[in-house]
């Protein structure tokens, strides 16, 4: 859709379409919505935003920790909406929009309930345990709903609980100094999720629903492996395994997203990763040997420019190949 829109704008700039006819052109090709499109949008916004706001309001309420409210009332305020939303999900069915929205509310309220339990009974549980338990409890609903947004929420909880675990047990300086270990673990988790997601989804086109979630996962994996490579190059930590994994992932990304399920978004991420890694390598080689070398900084700067330009040229040639 955005490509169509941009093409029409380009033709308008080239005066192939008059400015007076441009709005009509946008309508004809379906860029501008009609009455039914608007009804669908407002219906979806009201359902999903309404559900999200109601469940988040409950979380905010319990975060306020109103001491005047009795224990029983507090539990009723979270358990009743939880039961109602689960009931709506069963009644409407997990594959309808209303059913899925109800499941979203229920999954968020489970988190509120766990937080309330921890708050009320002072169990001494660590924050990572709350998120881990939350993820475990909502897993059946996430599987039933088959909704990309819920899967991403679930993976987000897993990532958060792992990060908090390492923050708690990772040593005196927490994340920074145990950064490599956390990054490796998160990379394994998110990469596994990406592989499993690809396995269970059928051949996808760029416009297929859920493609955004695959791109988000791929981006997360890309950021993690690039970070590990930067650590390896600049600090010397785990350089060999990071290099092996980085090369393997770049090759795999090329195979999958260039040949089998073309996706320029992921390829653009790979180009950016390559720019960062090669720049870090060059910086380490040049700036280490000649301290404060202005020439080295200039050379690195020009290299970044050349690499990114070459990457853009390659991406455009791939785009032209995919849309002959």
């Amino acid at each position: 859709m955005i490509a169509t829109r941009n093409q029409l704008l380009r033709w308008a700039a080239e005066q192939r379409i008059s400015l007076e006819d441009l709005p009509a052109a946008m309508r004809v090709v379906g860029v501008q919505p009609n009455g039914n499109d608007w009804r669908r949008l407002f219906d979806a916004m009201a359902l999903w935003l309404g559900s999200l706001f109601v469940s988040v309001s409950v979380i905010f309420f319990f975060a306020y920790n109103w001491s005047d409210l009795g224990r029983l009332s507090k539990f009723a305020l979270v358990e009743l909406p939880l039961l109602v939303s689960a009931g709506v999900a069963i009644w409407k069915g997990p594959h309808t929009d209303a059913g899925r929205a109800a499941l979203l509310v229920a999954t968020l309220l489970v988190g509120a309930l766990l937080a309330l339990i921890g708050q009320t009974y002072q169990t001494g549980a660590d924050p990572w345990q709350l998120f881990a338990l939350w993820a475990a409890l909502i897993l059946p609903w996430v599987v039933i709903a088959r909704m990309p947004a819920l899967w991403i929420l679930w993976l987000g909880l897993i990532n958060l609980s792992l990060t908090l675990y390492y923050t708690t047990f990772g040593g005196l300086f927490g994340v920074l100094f145990s950064g490599n270990e956390i990054a490796w673990v998160l990379l394994v988790v998110n990469l596994s999720a990406l592989v499993v997601w690809h396995y269970f989804s059928s051949t996808a086109t760029t416009q297929r629903p859920g493609r955004w979630a695959l791109r988000l996962l791929a981006t997360a994996c890309g950021v993690l492996i690039t970070t590990l490579m930067m650590y390896g190059i600049l600090d010397g930590q785990d350089l060999l395994p990071a290099t092996v994994v980085w090369i393997a992932l770049m090759w795999a990304a090329h195979e999958v997203y260039r040949r089998r399920q073309p996706d320029l978004f992921v390829l653009a991420g790979c180009v950016l990763s390559a720019v960062f890694v090669l720049t870090a390598t060059l910086s380490r080689l040049l700036l280490d040997t000649v301290v404060e070398s202005a020439g080295a900084l200039l050379l690195v700067g020009l290299t970044i420019i050349a690499l990114s330009a070459a990457g853009a040229w390659w991406l455009r040639s791939v785009a032209a190949e995919l849309d002959p």
């Binding site: 955005i2 941009n6 900084l297 700067g301 990114s308 853009a312 455009r316």
Partner: peptide, 30 residues
């Protein structure tokens, strides 16, 4: 040629900024 997708522009923008920082470093040092 096809219109450049927004994520390619974002990639170019980020890389351009990093390149600019190194060029500024060159000016600041040299």
């Amino acid at each position: 040629s096809p219109v450049t997708p927004w994520y390619v522009r974002v990639m170019l923008g980020i890389a351009g900024w990093v390149g600019a920082l190194f060029l500024l470093g060159f000016v600041a040092v040299g």
